[in-house]
């Protein structure tokens, strides 16, 4: 199926209506819209304190046409486990349980509940939308913040540690399906969600969601930045089905035909990286290259 016809096939039903309280240029909404289109109306969403609760708004002023429960910060995957169990107990297994938390609520605080749910194989779809810091409380560093970034708790010297490789952690749970997706590639998001909804068990998505407010770039550049992350292989698009890794979309074409871009421009246009030295940028490039080589090898290139 070509991408063109896929777009024509999208359901017309919208689950996120125009107008919400998120910052202008937020990357989350773009992907979220296509995720919900793919899952359909029989979906219940579990959300902790996060930017996503800002999108959901103050009920009844909400742009989201889906049943949502607001759980405590550490408990997203646990709350979703409860929903999934109840749907099973009441014979409503045609419902999807979507657990969606930010990088703070996943990489840091939510990891215990998520690991528990993933090991048990709960029938849930978990999405970590990753804007690389605690953006809802004003940009404090998280373990998803890349080395070299300034945040409000690494205000003088940028963060020194590399971003946690969360996909590797989830991969160690032997999941039936997991994927890296980007809000700059909504068609890829939609396709992967169509696939994931047919699979039972814990499915995990790592969604790259650029954040103009915390990354310090113009709001119009969200898609551009998202694309740069994929084009420079900082955030590759791929999926892992029963342990088999395949690159998808732009990342697949880079693997096949080359064209990988250096990280320099991506670093240069964001205010959060303004204190990075040339040496740190080189280190970042080396780290990205190593990760990418690993993915290529695993994907059979």
């Amino acid at each position: 199926m070509s991408e063109q016809s896929a777009i024509l096939d999208y359901p017309e039903q919208e689950y996120i209506l125009p107008g919400n309280r998120l910052c202008a240029g937020c990357g989350v909404t773009i992907a979220y819209r296509f995720m919900l289109k793919a899952l359909g109306k029989k979906t219940v969403i579990c959300v902790p304190a996060s930017c996503l609760t800002i999108l959901h708004g103050i009920y009844p002023k909400t742009p989201v046409m889906a049943t949502t429960v607001n759980n405590t910060f550490a408990s997203t995957a646990a709350a979703a486990s409860g929903f999934s169990a109840a749907f099973k107990a009441t014979g409503r297994e045609d419902w999807h349980v979507l657990a969606m938390a930010g990088d703070g609520g996943t990489f840091d605080m939510g990891i215990q509940a998520l690991s528990g749910a993933a090991e048990r194989g709960e029938n849930i779809i978990y999405v970590c939308y990753d804007n690389e810091a605690y953006m809802n409380t004003g940009s404090q560093r998280s373990s998803a913040t890349p080395a070299g970034a300034l945040t409000s708790t690494t205000p003088i010297r940028p963060k020194e540690q590399f971003k946690k490789d969360f996909m590797k952690i989830m991969d160690a749970h032997w999941l039936p399906y997991m994927a890296g997706i980007s809000s700059a590639y909504p068609a890829d998001v939609y396709k992967k969600f169509l696939k994931a909804r047919q699979i039972k068990g814990t499915r995990f998505f790592h969604l790259s969601a650029p954040c103009p407010t915390g990354w310090f770039y113009p709001t119009k550049d969200t898609v551009k930045i998202g694309r740069m992350m994929v084009e420079s292989c900082i955030f590759p698009l791929y999926e892992i089905e029963e342990g088999r890794l395949s690159l998808t979309g732009k990342s697949l074409s880079i693997a096949r035909s080359g064209g990988k871009k250096p990280v320099d421009e991506y670093v240069a246009i964001q205010g959060r990286f303004k204190k990075m030295t040339a040496e740190q940028v080189a280190q970042f490039q080396k780290h990205v290259d190593e990760q990418w080589e690993g993915l290529l090898a695993r994907a059979g290139f």
Partner: peptide, 19 residues
Amino acid sequence: GYPITPATEIAEHMSKRLP
């Protein structure tokens, strides 16, 4: 510390001052 409204500014200020 850990970010939480309305106490986050204490952590942010400490992150600036302690080093």
